[in-house]
Amino acid sequence: MIHGVPSPPVTADLAVDAHGLVKTFGDVRALDGVDLVVPRGTVVGLLGPNGSGKTTTVRILATLLQATAGTAKVNGFDVKSQADDVRRSIGLTGQYAAVDEFLTGRENLMMFGGLYHLDKAYVSERSDELLATFDLVDAADRPAKTYSGGMRRRLDLAASLIAKPGILFLDEPTTGLDPRSRIGLWNVMKGLVAEGTTVLLTTQYLDEADQLADDIVVLDHGKVIAHGTSSALKDEIGGDRLEVRLAREDQTSQAVSALVPLATGEIVTQDGLISAPITGGSTTLIEAVRALDAQQIEVDDIALRRPTLDDVFLSLTGHATEDETPAPPSRSRRRGPVRR
């Protein structure tokens, strides 16, 4: 008998439906009542610093851990009582490239395909397809030991996709990768999403959540502290800011008074940087340039800065996202005022 993925109960319009998840390890309450909903076909980013409970949440949903309390359904199946059905419905890519490094890329895919109980001819064809998609054709018959970090992650992701799961859990998929490999992997993930795959992504990189996720759930100390789209979260802490750096510091107070009519709130001056909350985007920016020019104030740099998720996180939790972990490879993005 040849059969497909078990068809989920009809009510399963949610890929993930978790309520009140609690997980304690001894005295530590790693999860403290987490609710999480991932509608089919969407990408939800689970965002938080180390130890916030992201990985614990994914491990419970992937049947690797049992929750102390709460219920969770994945693809309509209960993670506790229907673990095998859940496992058939998901692909999991963890924080490590979990491939056998002494086997070749193709051997790894064949092995995992066999362990998914897939048909051999299908696995062989699917492996070729995945190796091509993930740009691993040339390396297919070399042991994974010889692969670069980015190649291993791609092979790992390919192994998760061998059974064409509709739901993908990606637990910090780009941690430790160089910027080029990260962007490469983001493109692969975007392609999967475009094909309709549901993704639950954990990350501590704000730009990653920004890039990939429709909805963001912010976790801190095992609790959901915010939930919404990236732009909604940004709006919540206030909109755009105008940042001005002057050529001459003695013109600071003059500049601040010139900007007051445009600002929607208090203007902050720190280390020679004037920061004013504004609305109206670039129109206001042009007005500001005119106002400063009319007063003959010399400007070194003037820019409109959209809040980053860094700012969101700081304002929600009172601490930055990257407390204990190295910063992601920096790109040419304007950073928020919050630095470690």
Partner: peptide, 27 residues
């Protein structure tokens, strides 16, 4: 969609054990 294999005569535990054995020895 993915094509699943028939249940082997000796069951999945034997099937899966053989896969792991082979991979471990090969490695």
């Amino acid at each position: 969609s993915a094509v699943y294999a028939k249940r082997p005569p000796l069951g999945w535990t034997v099937h899966d054990s053989i896969i792991i054995t082979r991979a471990t020895i090969l490695a």
